[in-house]
């Protein structure tokens, strides 16, 4: 069943009047709610006859070549494996507006849950100094969370299932300052949760850059990022 509010959001999404931010959240919600997805697809399918009225236009000769050039630097992503909201796991599914609200705050909630669970003690020496949400620059979607501690270690939570081809690794980097340049914090064989010990560096600071690149295994040959950047983000100091 769709409520009036849901109907408004479905028509806003399909007609294109929804704001970009709301559209991103709505798409995340669709990934988790097959019923909603079916209702959206149904309306989109009905309206699509209007797209078919557009008279095909000439495509400039060089356009495919430009696209092809970019493919080498664009790793393919895997299937989305969404974190189910904790409440859904406990109750075995729920519906309605609450699901929407949960989905909107899902990534934050999942991250907080993980960190709280992982550290166990709450406030204490294992509180992160900074946290960075790393996003895919192409579409702004969050791909990983980095939690950096005072002892040079970092926790990584992957939110996107990056495809790591044979012979490649994911490498995590930070930029403590421009003079030092990018420093490797370690490698991961695949998208996963992990703790990396990291080299001896100054305490991480707000605004510090973190990124994940795709490198030849076992690690970047130059000690600097050489492969495509999958996700990047700037650290913030958590409110504790």
């Amino acid at each position: 069943m769709s409520t009036n509010d849901e109907m408004d959001r479905i028509t806003g999404y399909v007609l294109g009047t929804m704001e970009a931010d709301a559209r991103d959240a709505f798409e995340a919600e669709m990934l988790r709610d097959a019923g909603l997805r079916a209702r959206v697809d149904r309306l989109a399918g009905q309206m699509s006859a209007l797209d078919d009225t557009a008279l095909p236009e000439a495509v400039p000769e060089g356009l495919w070549a430009q696209i092809e050039t970019r493919l080498g630097a664009t790793p393919q992503l895997g299937r989305v494996t969404p974190f189910p909201p904790a409440a859904a796991r406990r109750r075995g599914g729920f519906v309605g507006r609450q699901a929407a609200l949960m989905a909107a705050s899902l990534i934050v909630a999942a991250a907080v849950g993980y960190f709280a669970g992982g550290q166990g003690t709450g406030l204490g020496p294992r509180d992160p100094v900074v946290i960075a949400v790393l996003v895919n620059e192409a579409d702004g979607s969050p791909g990983a969370i980095v939690e950096a501690f005072g002892d040079d270690s970092v926790n990584i939570v992957s939110l996107e299932n990056f495809v790591v081809p044979e012979g490649k690794v994911l490498e995590v980097w930070t930029l403590p300052d421009a003079d030092t340049g990018p420093v490797s914090l370690g490698q991961l064989p695949q998208a996963q949760r992990a703790t990396l010990s990291g080299p001896n560096l100054p305490l991480p600071d707000a605004g510090q850059l973190y990124e994940i690149t795709l490198e030849d295994a076992p690690a970047s040959p130059t000690g600097r990022p050489t492969g495509p950047i999958l996700v990047k983000g700037f650290a913030r100091v958590p409110v504790l």
């Binding site: 997805r37 697809d41 399918g45 495509v59 400039p60 356009l63 430009q66 696209i67 970019r70 493919l71 664009t74 790793p75 393919q76 992503l77 895997g78 299937r79 989305v80 192409a138 579409d139 495809v163």
Partner: peptide, 23 residues
Amino acid sequence: EEVVQESFVTAWQRAAQFDPERG
């Protein structure tokens, strides 16, 4: 042209997320 270029790069990047069951 720019939209079409970006869209095909996105289609490449996200191809595994295309679900033929959905349409």
